[in-house]
Write a protein that binds this DNA or RNA. Structure first.
Length: 195
DNA sequence: CTCTCGATGTTCT
DNA sequence: GAACATCGAGAGG
């Protein structure tokens, strides 16, 4: 299981290193897991795309917490998104998990999603719905106790990793929109958007 | 395949 | 009010 030390590193590095790792969630007594294939780094007071850039609010306060906790929030009034908090406490940084490939419990994920194949988990909100992740996990430390954590799984060589601008942040400043802080596994069907 | 639009709770552009 | 780190349905080519 990955410890807080892992998440204490620089956010883009954590986002890169999370590719290929196994996200595990205990949901209704069942063990569900998926291999992470797409992430995005958000961080620093200087990143206008980051929720924490304009200060602490009731929604984003988990981002200011210690490395290795979950930040889960609701977007568009109906979709939950999972982030893993990075860097030292009081720095609002996190990695958004945008896509993953089912490993264990795919039948349960399919029942929840009502869709087949990549549509199970090829997007940040789809992933949360499939794994049963919602605001109950917000602010909890990753681990057995919370029922949500990350494990080492497969190593990804550099040639299998692609990076580019983040998705869905069009109201940020141009320099931040251009940052190559999205990481994904090359040619993987569980990546939310090809580019 | 593409494009548009509605859903809906919280935050602030 | 408007916008939002999204998704899915429906219309049109």
């Amino acid at each position: 299981m990955l410890e807080p030390d892992f998440f204490a590193q620089k956010t883009p590095q954590v986002a890169r290193e999370l590719l290929g790792k196994k996200l595990v969630c205990i949901s209704q007594g069942q063990r569900l897991s998926a291999r992470i294939v797409e992430t995005e780094a958000y961080g620093g007071m200087e990143d206008s795309a980051c929720h924490g850039a304009r200060g602490k609010t009731s929604r984003n306060q988990a981002m200011f917490g210690p490395p290795g906790i979950a930040y889960v929030y609701l977007v568009y009034g109906m979709h939950h998104l999972l982030n893993l908090v990075t860097e030292p406490v009081e720095r609002p940084c996190a990695v958004l998990i945008r896509g993953a490939e089912p490993l264990e419990g795919e039948t349960i994920m399919a029942a929840r999603r009502g869709k087949p194949g990549p549509l199970l988990t090829n997007g940040p909100a789809k992933l949360c719905q499939a794994l049963g992740i919602d605001k109950r996990f917000n602010g909890l430390a990753l681990g057995e106790e919370s029922g949500l954590w990350v494990e080492n799984h497969s190593h990804l060589p550099e040639e299998a990793v692609r990076r580019g601008p983040r998705i869905g942040i069009h109201s940020a400043e141009p320099a931040d929109i251009a940052r190559p802080w999205r990481f994904w596994v090359r040619d993987n069907r569980y990546v939310s958007k090809v580019s």
